[in-house]
């Protein structure tokens, strides 16, 4: 069995009296591409934000290489530097150029030298095909370009896991492809990824583990063929058929 990187155990999250996540359990091993699917409001994004500690879980544990990161004494910034995140709304730093966006974290958080950081940033910008745009500001780029830069920024930190929070949902249809291509390339390069997505084709073709969430609980999980082609639960069947009809 491959190394376990992340283990989510009995994770729950409530906003006030509203329980968004109930007793979530799953494991991410090295090289896994886990697709989290489900209807809007089923807690997918909250789950991902909990994994990155952007939300504090109400109860339960998140084990990163066996160590619980939800406790009080944990250095959250240090942990986050090992877990990259790509957002639906890109969240590139508006006051910096594309290149600076990819350098600032390496220099300030990883304490790398400027030159080394620049070289590294250029390598990943090249990888996502955004190298010619290093001098552009985020406001001058299209959605797809921004998202590719966001991926490069996350990669430049050398993360062990990359979290994607609906990376293509805010994009025009013709730009979805360029971002999915990058993600596919990453997956085949062995990157460990946790992807919240509405792209069923991506879940089917790229991921090796699919988690279907419904109303804050994991309704069904397994390999793509198990969950997407032979769903056992009625909720999963309904969800998938709704998707096919659209």
């Amino acid at each position: 069995m491959a190394d376990t990187i992340l283990e989510i155990r009995h994770l729950s999250k409530s906003f006030g009296s509203h329980e968004v996540l109930k007793d979530i359990d799953f494991t991410v091993s090295k090289g896994d591409v886990t697709a989290i699917i489900g209807a809007s409001g089923s807690g997918k994004s909250t789950l991902l934000r909990c994994v990155n500690l952007l939300e504090t879980p109400t109860s339960g544990e998140i084990l990163f290489h066996g160590k619980d990161v939800t406790g009080r004494g944990v250095n959250a910034p240090e942990y986050r530097s090992h877990v990259g995140m790509v957002f639906q709304s890109f969240n590139l730093f508006n006051n910096m150029s594309v290149l600076e966006n990819c350098i600032v974290g390496q220099v300030k958080v990883l304490k790398k030298g400027k030159d080394e950081a620049k070289e590294n940033a250029l390598r990943f910008l090249q990888y996502v095909g955004m190298a010619p745009y290093i001098n552009a500001k985020p406001r001058q780029l299209s959605g797809g370009q921004k998202q590719r830069v966001a991926i490069a920024r996350a990669l430049a930190m050398g993360p062990e896991v990359l979290l994607f929070d609906e990376p293509t949902s805010a994009l025009d249809p013709e730009m979805v492809g360029e971002v999915l291509n990058v993600m596919q390339q990453l997956a085949s390069g062995g990157m460990t990824m946790l992807v919240v997505t509405h792209e069923m084709a991506f879940a089917r073709d790229v991921s090796n583990h699919v988690v279907y969430m419904n109303q804050g609980v994991i309704c069904e999980q397994g390999s793509p063929s198990e969950v997407l082609e032979n769903p056992q639960k009625q909720e999963t069947k309904d969800f998938l058929s709704r998707f096919r009809n659209n």
Binding site: L54, P77, R80, S89, F90, K108
Partner: peptide, 12 residues
């Protein structure tokens, strides 16, 4: 989102 982006790459 700017804060979240910064936090996500490990900034204090």
């Amino acid at each position: 989102g700017q804060t979240e982006g910064a936090k996500a790459i490990g900034m204090t």
